[in-house]
Design a binder for these strands. Sequence first.
RNA 1: GGUCUCGUAGCUCAGCUGGAUAGAGCAGCUCACUUCUAAUGAGCAGGCCCCAGGUUCGAAUCCUGGCGGGAUCACCA
Length: 614
Amino acid sequence: MEIIEKIQNQVTELLKDQFELELLSNQVVINKTRRDVAGDLTLVMFPFVKQLKKSPQEIGDIFSQRLSTTISEIKAIEIAGGFLNISLSDEYWNKVLKDLYHNPSFGTFPKNGKKILVEFSSPNTNKPLHLGHIRNILLGWSTSKISEAAGYKVIKTQIINDRGIAICKSMLAWQLFGEGKTPDSSNIKGDHFVGSFYVAFETHFKNEYNDWQNSAEAKNIFESESKENESYEAFLKRFKNEYFNRFSALGNQAKTMLQAWENDDPDIKALWKQMNSWVYDGFNTTYEALGVNFDALYYESDTYKLGKDIIENGLQDEVFYKKEDGSVWIDLESKKLDHKLVLRSDGTSVYMTQDIGTAQLRYKDHGVDSMIYVVADEQDYHFKVLFEILKELKEPYTDGLHHLSYGMVDLPTGKMKSREGTVVDADDLIKEVIDEARTGASDRGVLESISIEEREDIYRKIGLGALKFFILKVNPKKRMIFDPKDSVDMQGQTGPYIQNAVVRIESILRKLSDWDESLYFSYSSPLQIEKDLVKSLNEYPSEVLKAAEDKDPSIIASFAYELAKDFHKFYHDVRILKAESHSAKAYRVVLCTSIKNTLTKAMDLLGIEMPERM
RNA sequence: GGUCUCGUAGCUCAGCUGGAUAGAGCAGCUCACUUCUAAUGAGCAGGCCCCAGGUUCGAAUCCUGGCGGGAUCACCA
């Protein structure tokens, strides 16, 4: 806000003129005044007490003398201990409201010419999306919207992990037990259909392993390969993966299938395409339900061989080194990281290799200034290493690399575990929140006059609003607890609470008649609550910038909640349509319209739609 | 064990580039709908801001050391 700079500049000039004290203007600390104290801005004087060897009262007198004569927007200044509380004039705040009311792109910054690529979702194709993906998707989507509002051109992307042993397990199980069924024939959503065969594989494999445990072979292996004092149970738990690789018939078939896939076996490729297309149908339905989409897709089956040539070049430039067995490594000890493998001894890629190649490919494809990877914090180390390697390789885009690292989602009962069946399915969850909105609305019975279709659309907006807000209001970095009961709550600090503020304004605007917009600026004595609302609105653009800078949608969620809260209070205490004068009415309608517009924009940045009624 | 990260009300979370008496929501207890949508508002109650030091005029916030939770340290992804 310009006014803050004005004050800072006056103070630094004053200090220079009168005390020969040279300060940078941003060393003059100015905060918002506390709600319970009169004033708009608060200048902190403590730092000057020592430097000027004067009391806060004396400094306050000198400062306020200067500020009140040089800055016309200042109405009053009060000294309170070490704080200087500055009140700005009503005209100033009315001007602020006027400007933002007439600015259709309020809170949306002009294009800055920079491009950001945001990667999010990035599922495996062997099972449906779950709650963890939802947090990821909502964060990715919201960060994209916020970046756009802040002036960036955004390319939303994901890497689809469509190959590997996992999808082969689903494919094999379908071959063995599928009896030719399809999602259509069994009336199951495609991703769930394929996921059920993944589960079927795991079940059959587990049975096979159990049977094997009673065999002589198993006993022999235990004799020769168990650790000292290791129980048979502990051994079996540890040995499961190795059993898969060495002894399992099913494991063997799955691995054979993976090899066939890598050798481009036409039958296997056809099956793979078929099953993945079922999965994509399912994913698309879920994405659509969540209201998200992507601009560019990358498939692991296309990218998994990338990066090798970069490693080769890096080897020549001595960024990497080769061990005797032929494996290739990087030494990042100087960066307080470790030695990291980038190419196996057989010359094949690891995850890191692919990521190096994919980063370069994306830069070539889109020429972006920045790339944001929305990936859970369990991969913090991986991304530190990846970014360091890209820096060592002197890739041109490394200053713009960001890992939007978010905490895992826990349930009140603890971690989600697929083995224990505690994973919250994305589609179930979406259905549940919409059902809950429907139940709540029919209890209230206010929507009976409108069509079923419209009503359903409202339930959808409310239910998803509740879910999305519940997840996005939490700082991404923090691990969060998802209580399904709380997530469908629609009272208090929730999405529907904010939607309700907008709905109340819509209702007023529908009933509005007999008003003269031009009168609003002649309303000369705004109430405290009205000024507070204008002040909050005024902060919206800087909140957008901060959210973009921090890549943190929870900043927008907090802002929207605070604004809605002040509005509800205002609505309760102050008559709008029956205001005491025409100018007051006009002012309040303008204020309400600005609040509605701003809340709608803010919520749009969270991917939340606003109903007109609820 | 090394590294990273989190610890604020019964519960879920704000506040953290140091500033006045630490804030919300939920849950609990009151109160307010013939009123512009009560999915709302007002109130009560609830806190060694994990602990101990340090820096500072001033620390929930910064630093150090503990304690507790989580993640990670694969020729897995």
